[in-house]
């Protein structure tokens, strides 16, 4: 948003509830936008947007335990998640690990979890982690439903949030721990590559494993073949290094203006190895 005004904006509304937000949005026929933290929306607001519909005051800001996991409201700020007691313990502390690596404090005071999913930049930290964690998003539009974050940017759900509100993110319980790794040009820059891994152990062997890599430069995806290589094995540094080599061999990466595919291939293995080592340490292996 350069200049002194968001140029096209004629009206600003505080929605009273989700239904009102949706009916206002529909009434603008494509020239309205839902506003939460505003970090992405107002940074490059489309000039044809005439109405802003603020959804931060309709009770969607919370972090609470739900079915052994967590439920986090769509307009919850990243800072508020970091400060919540429920989030601190979840997944071996994965949310603190992740969110401390997202942007800087004043932007974390503004940015919301729902906003991160709606913006869905391919280099973004949060979607990669939510894919690894098996998170689902509950949404409400003309209809309502739940969709795994993993499927959110594919086929039928692409563009969902043009006409729907991200109500809450549901994080399932995991008996084990996760860790998040990222490489950027500086401590707070966007990721050149990121990875989130989790493991759980039963009877000395890995019972489940989750491996996701993002900013490849494409959006975060799980690597099922890397997960299969872990399950049933005994956790060890040697195993993490075997998976590092496997990832470097098989991962699909590409070039963009930020980094080359060859660099990403090398580094993806390293990030996965580091994340696995830290996650297993946290899981008490």
């Amino acid at each position: 948003m350069s200049g002194v005004h968001a140029r096209g904006v004629r009206r600003f509304h505080f929605a009273r509830d989700v239904e009102e937000a949706l009916s206002l949005l529909a009434a603008y026929e494509g020239r309205g936008a839902l506003l939460a933290g505003g970090v992405d929306l107002l940074r490059s607001l489309r000039v044809d947007i005439e109405g802003l519909i603020d959804i931060t005051r309709i009770g969607l800001s919370y972090t609470k335990e739900a079915r052994g996991g967590l439920a986090i409201g769509g307009t919850t700020t990243l800072t508020s998640i970091l400060e919540s007691r429920a989030a601190r313990e979840y997944g071996g502390g994965i949310l603190a690990d992740l969110l401390h690596r997202v942007a800087v404090p004043p932007l974390r005071n503004m940015a919301t979890l729902g906003g991160a999913l709606v913006s869905a930049h391919p280099w973004a930290d949060i979607p990669t982690a939510l894919v690894a964690l098996g998170a689902e998003v509950r949404w409400q539009g003309e209809k309502e439903g739940r969709v795994p974050v993993e499927e959110l940017y594919q086929g039928p759900f692409r563009g969902l949030f043009r006409q729907a509100v991200a109500i809450e993110v549901l994080l399932p319980p995991w008996d084990g721990a996760f860790a998040y790794e990222k490489v950027g040009r500086t401590g707070y820059d966007i990721a050149l590559l990121n990875a989130c891994c989790g493991v759980g152990v039963e009877g000395g062997r890995i019972a489940w494993a989750r491996v996701a890599v993002g900013a490849r430069p494409d959006r975060g995806e799980r690597l099922p073949w890397a997960e299969e290589a872990l399950i049933g094995q005994r956790p060890s540094q040697t195993l993490w290094q075997e998976v590092q080599d496997l990832v470097a061999k098989r991962i699909e990466v590409g070039d963009d203006r930020r980094a080359s595919g060859a660099w990403r291939r090398e580094v993806a293995g390293v990030l996965v190895e580091r994340a696995l080592a830290r996650a297993s340490g946290r899981a008490g292996m």
Binding site: G38, L52, L107, N109
Partner: peptide
């Protein structure tokens, strides 16, 4: 009490 970027906000947000 929270630091924010005033360039990324529109005035009505501080209602």
């Amino acid at each position: 009490g929270r630091a924010v970027r005033s360039c990324l906000m529109v005035a009505p947000q501080v209602q």
